[in-house]
Write a protein that binds this DNA or RNA. Structure first.
Lengths: 333, 333
DNA sequence: TTGAAAGCGCTAACAG
DNA sequence: CTGTTAGCGCTTTCAA
């Protein structure tokens, strides 16, 4: 079988020089219509596909942006990813994606690997990168966006919202509704979950009236099933006193809700449930679950836009962008 | 700011030649330990990262595999992706991912784009690629895997299961349970959904006793909410006669189940519900939903293994690999 | 085990 | 608007 066609092969077929073919592919406007159509036909005819490696090497533009998320299975990052992919398409970029499984060390390795692709921008989740990772990123000189949470000392750009404030607000929501024995159900316990928990504790500490709190956490990864188990755990720990739970995400909240049915608890009469992330199911179960919504898709899109507009060279401090969040009150509280 | 360090810079610092540094990175065994450690230190010290484009160009090995899925938001492909990423890690490969939004034309464009990365393998979903796409793929000479469904004339390798058979089986399951007024709820209507529907019709046509069928479909994309709407639609169309629904996926099934509560229908007494894909939630709702399970994660992994073991050159016909499926019977039927 | 030379396929810069 | 030349940073091949 003949080897893959290259620029010269196309040039020969079209009766032009290689550079002209190159221009048709990258700057069609700079080539006369006559030659352009001739070249385009030749390209299609022999099924020519440009060699990205050679192109990137010669032009110093890889057309790639690197993205690292903590988990492929978490729908939350999926939403962000969709935003990223939608924006990337406009800019004719490719995404190289890594899943660091919530591990800064794995993330460090991934950063090194992905940087080798000479990405034109880098999107990271969260703010707890290793020192060496930060060094590599800084040295690369490319624009960087840290997503999801807000940071005091971002590597470069930063867009997200305060999980601490959201934790405070949703806890206050429960307190305002009259609940006084609040449970916190937490899984995974990554930094954002910890911030939500900190918010929970803060709201309780600041509350003027007596109230109880029960914190049940695990480093296991989150799932609906786990939500049921954690509800059992918090009821055990509170000896059945707990009258409201703040679940660190909607998966847990759904599991907790399903478990209440098996336990014959009425929601929200016997126990209130609220979650985080506002998944579709939360709005449709009976009773619908109060949750915290945030513009994930838009965050992903905006991250790409930020990368594209960043000159890359300006080392000026860019203020974090707070996209905010919204407490969606539903029947479960 | 100094430009990014390259091989020569490292070589200078380590006091060796560039090619020796290259060997330390790719074939550490071929370099004496003394030089190797010296080079490794130099690499770490100046934060050197190998230029992938140059490396790929010179070696004709990109270390990349291309993957196209029809939808980033569908959890089903997410599972497959996770399998792919887990396998890819073992082989030190990068994934370049595209989302074709269920469109063969978009897929064709993506294939061209992704082929420009000189991937060493290509994973596609489904079997309805355009002719030009097939030509490009064939011409590329790289191993290709088509995932999810079985094909009579795969481009190269093929791994999946028969959605038609699964549709037949689940429909027969409903018939055996005594239901005679069966509804089919379908969204998106991609090829796999169509095959499930074909199975549904076939089972009904082959059934020896009189029975009714009501097919309600939409090209809208699937969601939980839509499941409720389609249930309403099928009840309207059947004038309340429908006593069982086969939902083309679990999202619709969940939505249908939630809707039954609002309609005051008892499941499975008044109406049976079954889904497809066996999502976690299906097992945990009340009543739990009968569904069709398949080894998605493993399919993803196996696809990568197939690519890696494929010599790439042998044009022998490889028989499709049937990973099978399993009907998980639960309380909803 | 190490190095020197050549070139992968493309595009930037310059020239016509 | 089109072409020529040089070289991107690395690895292959060959030689020492």
């Amino acid at each position: 079988m003949n080897k893959k066609p290259n620029l010269k092969d196309v040039a020969k077929v079209a009766g032009v020089s290689a550079i002209t073919v190159s221009r048709v592919l990258s700057n069609p406007d700079k080539v006369s219509e006559k030659l352009r159509t001739k070249v385009e036909q030749a390209v299609h005819e022999i099924g020519y596909i440009r060699n990205h490696a050679a192109s990137a090497l010669a032009s110093r533009r890889s057309g790639v942006i690197a993205v690292i998320i903590p988990s492929l299975s978490n729908i939350v990052f999926n939403d962000v990813l969709q935003g990223i992919y939608s924006a990337v398409k406009q800019h004719h970029l490719q995404v190289v994606l890594g899943d660091c499984h919530y591990s800064p060390l794995e993330e460090e390795k991934l950063i090194a690997t992905l940087l080798s692709q000479s990405p034109e921008g880098f999107i990271l989740t969260g703010t707890d990168q290793t020192d060496y990772a930060r060094k590599l990123l800084q040295q690369s000189g490319i624009p960087i966006v840290q997503l999801m949470e807000l940071s005091d000392c971002p590597i470069d750009m930063n867009i997200g919202f305060s999980h601490f404030n959201a934790g405070v607000d949703i806890t206050n929501h429960l307190l305002q509704k009259g609940y006084r024995k609040l449970g916190f159900l937490g899984a995974r316990m990554d930094t954002r979950t910890q911030q939500r928990l900190a918010g929970f504790k803060k709201a309780i500490a600041d509350f003027k009236q007596p109230c109880q709190s029960y914190v049940v956490t695990t480093t296991q990864s989150s799932s609906i099933r786990l939500g049921g188990q954690l509800l059992q755990a918090v009821m055990a720990e509170s000896q059945g006193q707990c009258d409201a739970v703040f679940c660190c995400n909607d998966d847990l909240a759904l599991g907790a809700l399903f478990e209440t049915k098996r336990m014959n608890l009425k929601v929200p009469a016997d126990i209130a449930i609220c979650g985080f992330n506002d998944l579709e199911a939360s709005a449709l179960v009976e009773p619908a679950i109060t949750s915290v919504a945030s513009p994930r898709y838009e965050m992903g899109q905006q991250a790409v836009e930020l990368l594209m507009t960043a000159s890359g060279k300006d080392k000026t401090h860019k203020p974090p962008i707070d996209v905010g969040y919204r407490i969606v009150e539903r029947a479960s509280t």
